[in-house]
């Protein structure tokens, strides 16, 4: 069970996450993208999901990550992510409900480069009963 008072909370992630060319290249290679001057549109999920896991599995919040499936995902992309970027990530637990024993958590991730909002994304994560 997710601690109910965590809904609405925003968590700051690591101070900054450095993006390397080799990370972009590896992600692009899987999908056959050869232009790696900027990251593919879904690249930042690796940052956001990692942060969601760190936040939601804290003992005081208490989500069981081992039974988690991804329900849906949305990105709004305001600027391109490139090698050499240093991004800060904040995550917000937007909603939580239980349906048929499944826990359904909606979380939002905002990635900033300095003061500039680069990508916002929304994930629905489902912990199966």
């Amino acid at each position: 069970m997710l601690a109910p008072d965590s809904v609405g909370s925003t968590f700051a992630g690591a101070d900054s996450i450095s993006i390397s060319q080799s990370e972009i290249d590896a992600f692009a290679a899987v999908i056959g993208e050869t232009d790696t001057t900027s990251a593919p549109p879904t690249f930042t999920i690796r940052i956001s999901l990692d942060q969601f896991q760190n936040i939601l599995t804290q003992p005081e919040i208490g989500l069981d990550w081992s039974r988690l499936v991804h329900g849906d995902q949305k990105f709004e992309i305001f600027a391109q992510v490139k090698a050499g970027d240093s991004l800060s990530c904040s995550a917000t637990i937007e909603s939580y409900r239980v349906a048929a024993g499944n826990e359904i958590v909606s979380v939002r991730s905002d990635l900033h480069r300095g003061a500039e909002l680069v990508v916002s994304s929304w994930s629905t994560l489902v912990v199966r009963a």
Binding site: F27, V30, I31, G32, E33, D35, T37, S38, A39, P40, P41, T42, I45, L49, V69, H70, G71, D72, Q73, K74, F75, E76, I77, Q80, W122
Partner: peptide, 28 residues
């Protein structure tokens, strides 16, 4: 997210590269 990344590649190949996507969403 692999499925979504591959669909993203389909989109960006048509629209003119990785920088052309403004919004992208799907349910699994």
């Amino acid at each position: 997210m692999l499925t979504m990344a591959l669909v993203g590649k389909y989109v960006t190949d048509w629209s003119g590269g990785t920088a052309s996507v403004k919004e992208f969403g799907a349910r699994f």
